[in-house]
Simulated assay, not measured.
Amino acid sequence: MPHLTVQAAEVQLAGHEDTLITALTDAVVGVYGDWARPLVVIRLVGVPTGRWAVGGVPTDNPAPEVAFGIRAGALARPDGRDIARRLVAAVTDAVATALELDDDLRATTIVELIPQPDELVGVGGTLINDTTETEG
């Protein structure tokens, strides 16, 4: 399941939430295919004014950051590097377009792909692909 958490200044997000959610979902689907659409989870985190700093200096207009949880297996495939490149480019474009970022903010937008091994990720209280039986 692709999970994207976008952190951006609240003033950047305000009024752009629906557009950003659609753009990010479409970006992931553009790389994976339409089968992934119902699996895309997006969280938007708006950071209030005065709570973001760069180089020790508060800023009201930071470059957004995206943490993208992705199954480790997707990046371990022979085409994993290409998938990573395509995801980073598509997500950056989606954020920049939806939030109407200028070129400087687009150029410094961070997309961090965070590989998640199945054996270390759980859904609904159970590890993904857990084949061990529980004692009861």
Rank of each mutant, 00 (worst) to 15 (best):
V95P: 00
A8Y: 00
E133H: 07
G73D: 09
A90L: 09
V88L: 07
G122Y: 06
D18K: 14
D103C: 07
T134R: 14
L105V: 07
G55S: 05
E135K: 14
L105A: 09
L120G: 11
E133R: 14
L120F: 12
V91Y: 05
L75P: 00
G50W: 06
A27W: 01
E135C: 10
E100A: 15
V31N: 03
T108D: 10
E112M: 12
D118E: 12
L4D: 00
N61T: 12
L120R: 15
R86S: 08
V6R: 00
A14I: 01
A107D: 11
T5L: 12
H3L: 14
A96H: 02
T25V: 02
P115F: 06
E133V: 10
G73R: 05
D130T: 06
T132W: 11
V111C: 07
R71H: 13
L20Y: 00
T134Q: 15
R106D: 03
P62G: 03
P2F: 07
I42P: 00
L113W: 00
A63Y: 05
A63Q: 01
W35D: 13
D26N: 15
T131F: 07
T131M: 11
E17T: 04
R77G: 03
D93L: 05
D93Q: 08
P117H: 01
T59W: 04
V88N: 12
R106E: 03
R81K: 14
E17G: 12
G125S: 04
L101K: 00
T132R: 14
T22A: 15
E17V: 09
P62M: 06
P78F: 00
L44N: 04
A74H: 15
V111D: 02
R85C: 10
T59P: 08
Y32A: 13
I70A: 01
V6G: 02
E10F: 05
E135P: 04
T108N: 08
T131K: 10
G46T: 06
V123A: 12
P48V: 03
V91I: 15
G125W: 05
A72Q: 14
V66D: 04
Q7H: 12
G124R: 00
A14G: 07
P115Y: 03
L87V: 05
G69E: 11
V41D: 13
D18W: 07
E119C: 10
A107Q: 08
Y32P: 04
L105T: 06
G30H: 06
E133K: 11
E133F: 10
P78M: 04
R106L: 06
I83A: 11
P115T: 04
T134L: 15
A8V: 01
E135V: 13
E17L: 09
T49S: 15
A89H: 09
H3R: 10
R71Y: 11
T131W: 11
R51G: 08
A90K: 01
D18Y: 01
R86L: 06
I83Y: 05
T25A: 07
T132K: 13
I114K: 08
A53E: 05
T126N: 14
R37M: 04
D82S: 13
R85F: 11
V11C: 14
T132V: 09
I21E: 13
G56E: 02
D102R: 01
V28G: 04
I128K: 13
N129W: 06
V40T: 03
G55T: 04
D103V: 10
P115Q: 02
E135W: 13
M1T: 13
T126S: 15
H16M: 02
G136N: 12
I21D: 12
